[in-house]
Design a protein around this nucleic acid. Structure first.
Lengths: 225, 225
DNA sequence: GCCAAAGCTTAAAGCAGCCTAAAAAAACAC
DNA sequence: GTGTTTTTTTAGGCTGCTTTAAGCTTTGGC
């Protein structure tokens, strides 16, 4: 689901963008009327959130041109003006909804949902290193085409190692990642987890990827040194 | 164009009726919720103007029942209450617009025109995962051909889980979905809800779909791991 | 080669996290 | 108000992740 937010005040624009993204929408921003119109004309958008007071070409203008071009993308107009005439004009020009500032974010979101009836949400990206893939959505680790589930702590550790693959990750960094800032983990606990990870990462006959750096920590890399 | 006005205060009802007729609409009046529902169910209406506070059966109820029966006539809810939660609830139940009293007649007319121009709204996509269907209009969950109603909180949770089916949904995300950003829910509350959901999703003998991810959250997926 | 330090392996114990059932509290309907 | 539904709290039990500990192996310095 793609939403275009046309709003020239950067603060508000970003607030709206973040809120919508949290709801799982893809969000595009337009800073002025020309841009908003151009982007809407291209199609592929599911909902428009249009500020009325835009530089260049105001929201009414955008809607009018859009509707004239038979683009029926649902639009919500947002404005500080609450003059009745404006509201009426906006709706009659082809807007589907109208909000006056100050408005509650919740209400805007509910109205966007009402118009879009929600779509799929975006998932976190997978991390890769060589033939190793960390599926962050499912907490699974894949080597080649073998897949194994990870426990919570294992997951945090692998995530940290993969984020810094190629580099040495000190044990205290791993402790921080797996157990939080006020960590109180003994080395042997870490040994046990690294062993468990090794067995999940590497099967007999496969190249070792998780290497020990004596006195410091661990490192995810390819060749022996 | 036919408009139904459901409003129990005779003065206001007649005012609306006359105003709409001046605009060229055919207008029917309903004095209570039952009557409004019955008349809407018959179909043939282009726009509904629903007061929330109706005797017999409130506006929410009317909308819910209407949408449950796959009647997608566009509806505007009108109410004195301006509590945000009500607005959100109304829109999420399937209302297309919302006005709080006191409102200007001009704005109502413009909104009626906007909705009648748009025609019946498209039914929202029900969420699906395997043989599980979430009917968002009616807050019902279907597994195979067994249907069960969901409470409000259950619904929010299932919706979140289904929108991210296949992925792990952390408990704090579920808390956010079910109780809002400023949530203060104990884990045990969540446990109880997940248990309730499990019993609604899975009957003895059926494959388990809702899995626990220890230390993280829950996940809607198929295979056991 | 010998030693100490660092890291590894294993199995078993501990306990956090989760489940369940039931009852209390709160919200809602009439 | 009363009765009903929904939500939250409570407490006990269970599961399996995490930790511990003890013995073993490797590493690097002499």
């Amino acid at each position: 689901m793609r939403v275009l937010v046309a709003e020239d005040k950067p603060r508000l624009a970003n607030l709206l963008k973040r809120a919508l993204m949290r709801e799982g929408f893809e969000v595009a921003l337009a800073m002025d009327g020309e841009q908003a119109l151009a982007m809407s004309m291209m199609g592929g958008l599911d909902v428009l959130v249009l500020d009325v007071m835009l530089p260049g070409r105001d929201g009414f203008d955008v809607i009018r041109n859009l509707r004239a071009a038979r683009q029926m993308t649902p639009a919500i107009m947002v404005t500080a003006r609450d003059a009745m005439a404006d509201v009426v004009r906006g709706l009659d020009l082809g807007a589907d909804d109208y909000l006056t500032k100050p408005f509650s974010l919740e209400i805007l979101l509910a109205r966007v949902r009402a118009l879009s009836r929600r779509g799929p949400i975006t998932a976190p990206a997978d991390l890769r290193f060589r033939d190793l893939v960390l599926h962050r959505r499912t907490h699974e680790l894949q080597r080649g085409d073998r897949r194994v589930p990870l426990t919570r702590t294992e997951f945090e550790l692998v995530e940290t190692l993969m984020r810094r693959s190629g580099n040495i990750v000190p044990r205290d960094v791993l402790a921080e990642a797996g157990w939080g800032g006020d960590a109180d983990v003994s080395d042997s606990t870490i040994y046990v987890f690294m062993r468990s990870l090794r067995s999940k990462i590497t099967q007999p006959g496969e190249e070792q990827l998780l290497h020990t750096v004596r006195g410091v920590g661990y490192s995810l890399r390819t060749e022996e040194s």
